[in-house]
């Protein structure tokens, strides 16, 4: 039997890696090493950061062959996100866009309502839209309706490295939404990335967890392994976990005869 390839498909594009790498919190010279050691095929970057003159443009540091995922950070509502996405296209960042709309400068929590509006408008303009959102099932369904190519719920506040604080709600999205669920923000450790993948997440996005590590390329490699392990475990089907005691050797229904 021919082994079927396990790909992440977003908006008709297939990727082998399930690790999406952020680029905004560490030195430009490290981006290439991080991409290589993470085996990442998608790298996010802030359009506002790419909106620079010739000197040290972050775009110049992203290796060829990597799919750019420009984000709309800095947008405070749907209008601004749409404008930033269009600028990303003009800057040559392609058709992918990660919508980030924040009305809170302290926690940088996404504004779900504005995100739905921006998703609809940008999907209509032909973008492959990947909205960053607070994990709410109704909102996720609206995003599907609006034309999103994936849904990116947060695990914990961005930059917090707090892990799967919203685990139960992410699981609901994984169970109920037919698009890839990509866990974004808050993942601090490879073990947490692995856990999310075991749950059935389609991919993991991380930035701060790498940026704050002692050795960035090594941490990138650790995430790569953890994500691959979690994916394999998900595909293999996790064994049961007993909540208490051991399995009863005499089944309760052993008396049934026909």
């Amino acid at each position: 039997m021919e082994k079927q390839e396990d790909c992440l498909v977003i908006g008709g594009h297939a990727f082998h890696s399930r690790f999406i790498l952020g680029s905004g919190k560490y030195s430009l010279q490290l981006i290439e090493a991080a991409v290589q050691d993470a085996g990442a095929e998608i790298v996010t970057l802030a359009v506002r950061r790419a909106n620079t003159k010739e000197q040290e443009n972050i775009l110049d540091y992203i290796p060829n062959g990597v799919t750019l995922l420009p984000n709309t950070s800095g947008a405070r509502n749907a209008d601004e996100a749409v404008r930033i996405a269009r600028l990303a296209r003009e800057l040559g960042c392609g058709d992918f866009v990660k919508i980030e709309i924040m009305r809170d400068s302290k926690y940088l929590l996404p504004d779900n309502a504005e995100t739905i509006k921006a998703t609809e408008r940008l999907a209509n303009e032909g973008f492959v839209v990947m909205p960053y959102m607070y994990p709410d099932l109704n909102v996720a369904r609206d995003l599907v309706e609006a034309g999103a190519a994936a849904v990116m719920p947060l695990a914990a506040p961005i930059g917090s490295n707090k892990g799967l604080a919203t685990k139960a709600f992410i699981q609901i999205l994984i169970d109920e939404i037919d698009l890839p669920i990509i866990v974004d923000a808050g993942i601090g450790k490879p073990s947490e990335a692995c856990e999310a993948m075991e749950m059935g997440a389609a991919a993991i996005m991380a930035n701060t967890a790498l940026a704050t590590a002692g050795n960035l390329p090594l941490m990138a490699a650790a995430f790569k392994d953890a994500i691959a392990a979690g994916r394999k475990a998900y595909l293999a089907g996790l064994g049961r976990v007993l909540t208490r005691g051991a399995a009863a050797s005499d089944p309760l229904t052993g008396f049934l005869h026909d």
Partner: peptide
């Protein structure tokens, strides 16, 4: 700043 291990950034902003 680069020698101190920091990433100097000249712009991280958009007027929208």
């Amino acid at each position: 700043m680069a020698a101190e291990g920091l990433q100097p950034v000249l712009n991280d902003y958009l007027y929208v």
